[in-house]
Design a binder for these strands. Structure first.
Lengths: 300, 300
DNA sequence: AAGTGGTCTAGACCACTAT
DNA sequence: TAGTGGTCTAGACCACTTT
């Protein structure tokens, strides 16, 4: 079984390595790769043509810039993650195995995984292995929620879905989702309560093209964390997000829903979440009641 | 000149290494350290007593936990930074020199500096060296300011100091500064405007004991970034901070100062800034006008 | 040309987890 | 006992900056 993977993986990396290796000293570099499964492939591929004859460029100025080996390995692992070769919560192959598969040293694979771990895409566990990060696990349940209670520890809120349906994307939502105005989107309005106190009122806008099979009924029936649903049923993981925060006053409708006086100051949080390839998949517009909670942020 | 540093440094590290090395396999570990200036010191120190006879413990349970070598090196470099052996903006010794000074490999020093760079305490510049981070430099001018204009690029605000004086710390400020209620603190109230539009109204509370020589006159005369003043004149660097964010309504006084209607929703940001040793040195309570600006945050 | 950080390899051993 | 990630060393060479 591993043997098959090795040859496939080796071929893939070969394409990548080409543009890098051909510009450095062949002799000395390959000296250090004695025994590498890549060695012969690299040499022979010098006689073949690349799919795109262009070397990797990073600055657009025409002067080619080359990424380090470990960055290329990182990209390969990233492809494995994106293609669901290894699923959320599962273990990826050990550093030694990946090193063998890609024909590089363990240290180079290690550095690639270091960066993936720093970006929270994978989680290392000493003695066990390296695992694909998941929104399902308890430890990353609150990964994107910065709202903390003034006293006590954070716990999961009660979810009330007020509305859910498919509709056509308004201009501002479309812009943030990087789709066209009028494209199909899934809309949801929900409220979250902590200890029975309504605290978060939010709209969710999901790219319709990505979550084609998501029915309104399914959403209405589901009470848990939305990111977990999207991950398990559509294989779409939220990897990073950006938030824009402002202070606003509660209008009549909002005040009524949250059970607050008109014009109560609220935190307005506009979040755009991204999956692999920096693809925007969700816009979330939330209103936080900051009487018993606050938005926490660490600066460094 | 370097020779003196080497011997001093070697002695210092010896103390640190002791509690670690004495618990691992002496024979095998030292095999890998042939030529190390530490080798003889370590061996001989087995016959001497430590200042405090206790090994490093990290969990208080009595079971000793040992930090990796690179963590100990990191601590040593940190001491050099904290003691102003290398000042903000200056270059610290090269990896090779530090390796020689501490009697470890370059790779170990490298890993220590990697972490310091990740924490923004130092900045690496290829081909030049590693430099102590500074709030004076243009690149880190906005390091702690997450308020961005809705349109255009961030630029430095105009500063208007409304009030500045020494007084005794109220209970809540004292708690956050980790000092005693009634201890001397420096208070400042100021307003910051972007393009003539009042946008930030904030109170600054500085620990009086740390900024003993800071006169109210000096603060009133100074118009630039406060963290730069504290860094240059008191050698106190702000390394990290935590912010608690809420939405509030402008009261009469605030509304008048900012030129806004009563009850305008504002972002309330409570920041506590820390220097070396996680020592709190400033509490900053700010009100942000989020009409033309927003608070930006990246999640991952 | 010399010095700095950046990358890569190879090999050893430690710490932790599971069987 | 075997397998995983974590630490440490040693040496080579690359990329960038300054002299």
């Amino acid at each position: 079984m591993p043997a098959t993977s090795v040859s496939v993986g080796s071929f893939a990396v070969n394409i990548y390595l080409m543009s890098y290796i051909r510009h450095i000293n062949f002799h000395n570099f390959l000296d250090g790769m004695a025994g590498s499964v890549l060695k012969s492939l690299i040499m022979s591929s010098a006689h073949t043509s690349l799919p795109s004859g262009q070397p990797i460029t990073a600055n657009g100025s025409g002067a080619p810039t080359f990424s380090p080996l470990y960055q290329q390995i990182k990209k390969l692992i990233l492809q494995g993650l994106q293609s669901n070769e290894w699923r959320p919560g599962e273990m990826i192959p050990s550093e030694m195995e990946l090193a063998g598969r890609y024909g590089v040293s363990q240290g180079t694979v290690r550095k690639a995984i270091d960066e993936l771990a720093a970006e929270n895409l994978v989680v290392r566990r000493q003695g066990k292995g390296t695992f694909v990060a998941s929104h399902l696990e308890a430890r990353s349940q609150f990964r994107f929620l910065r709202l903390k209670p003034n006293v006590g520890a954070a716990h999961y809120p009660d979810n009330t879905i007020i509305e859910a349906r498919r509709l056509r994307a308004p201009a501002d939502i479309a812009r943030q989702l990087e789709i066209k105005t009028g494209d199909s989107v899934i809309f949801m309005l929900r409220m979250q309560s902590f200890d029975g106190v309504p605290t978060i009122l939010e709209e969710l806008w999901l790219s319709g093209a990505i979550f084609k099979g998501l029915s309104v009924e399914r959403m209405l029936a589901y009470k848990g964390p939305m990111y977990a649903l999207l991950e398990t049923e559509f294989g779409t993981q939220m990897l990073r997000a950006t938030e824009s925060i402002r202070a606003v006053a509660a209008d009549e409708r909002v005040a009524a829903l949250l059970g607050l006086p008109l014009n109560t100051p609220l935190l307005s949080v506009n979040r755009v979440s991204y999956t692999y390839g920096d693809k925007a998949v969700e816009v979330r517009r939330s209103l936080y009641v900051t009487n018993d909670h606050y938005y926490h942020n660490d600066l460094s």
